[in-house]
């Protein structure tokens, strides 16, 4: 449904995208995971025909982003990273405006947004600028869906949104996917990555890895330990000095330590005890996508 092949894009000296390639199958919920500045927004702007790539090719449903830009603009639903609806128009007016611009009506496609819009209904006379962050995103999603797009492109839709709204938002995306909609979504949140069918880990304009979230986690090449102790910060500092460590980073109120495969629990415990760490609890765990990402980023 979406193909990206060897896309390059530079802004002056900075190379934002370096020969980026990936494919999204029809009906997939595809995640682009990466930190700020990885090139995600640049890629979205190329796919939505707002920006021309220096080289490489990209198609949406067989339509070339360069040649068929007019057709693409009719069939793509886009939610930019920054809230881009009219703050001084009401919820209803925004929706109506975008429906009309796409030569359709809210009534005609209401079934597409029914679930989402239901939550907005009580505020339909309110100005978009007066909505909460989560509500704004729901409105933006409604506006992106109102013309029945075949592909949905969402650039960091949950940044700046509270955890509950984030969860709701992803439930909506899952529902839309069940309706057969192809969705490409970018996010800096690694927990959201696990909700995608397939993810591409992006950094510095390059793709580090592409796979299902499960396979990515399984392919973790090291042994992973979760270590709990009295002082998380102190433990982390001490573990960074550990000879057999691959990486160590804080993960909530515990430390995740990746080590060589021959390391065992006893070795870590005695090392920590020697350094004077108290109340140590060590557990071998399965790697999550975040561990893989941290490992790849090194």
């Amino acid at each position: 449904m979406i193909t990206v092949q060897n896309i390059n894009k530079s802004y002056g000296q900075v190379q934002a995208l370096k020969s980026l390639s990936f494919n999204v199958e029809e009906g997939q919920l595809y995640g682009l995971i990466g930190p700020d500045g990885a090139g995600k927004t640049t890629l979205f702007r190329i796919l939505t025909t707002l920006l021309l790539a220096d080289s490489g090719e990209a198609t949406l449903d067989g339509l070339d982003v360069k040649k068929d830009y007019k057709k693409i603009r009719k069939m793509v639903g886009y939610m930019p990273e920054r809230f881009s609806l009219y703050m001084d128009l009401t919820v209803e007016e925004n929706l109506n405006f975008f429906a009309t611009v796409f030569q359709t009506t809210v009534e005609e496609n209401y079934h597409l947004i029914h679930d989402i819009y239901q939550m907005l209904e009580p505020f339909k006379k309110r100005k978009a600028g007066d909505l909460s962050g989560g509500m704004k995103q729901k409105l933006a999603l409604s506006c992106a869906l109102i013309h029945k797009p075949r592909v949905l492109l969402l650039d960091e839709p949950t940044t700046g949104v509270d955890p509950v709204s984030r969860k709701e938002f992803w439930e909506m995306l899952k529902k839309l996917q069940q309706g057969g909609l192809t969705t490409l979504v970018s996010t800096p949140f690694l927990d959201e990555a696990e909700l995608c069918d397939e993810v591409a880990l992006v950094q510095n304009g390059q793709i580090l890895k592409v796979d299902t979230p499960q396979n990515i986690a399984l392919a973790f090449p090291h042994k992973l330990w979760q270590i709990k102790s009295k002082s998380n910060y102190k433990t982390l500092k001490i573990l960074k000095e550990f000879n057999q460590k691959i990486s160590a980073f804080a993960f909530g109120n515990v430390v995740h330590l990746a080590t060589d495969l021959e390391v065992n629990e006893m070795m870590i415990e005695s090392y920590l005890k020697n350094k004077g760490v108290e109340q140590i609890q060590i557990q071998a765990i399965q790697a999550g996508i975040e561990d893989v990402f941290m490992d790849l980023m090194q």
Partner: peptide, 13 residues
């Protein structure tokens, strides 16, 4: 400035 042009430019206007 307020970014609405981004959304508008992706429409068939």
């Amino acid at each position: 400035e307020i970014g609405t042009i981004e959304q508008l430019n992706v429409t068939p206007i």
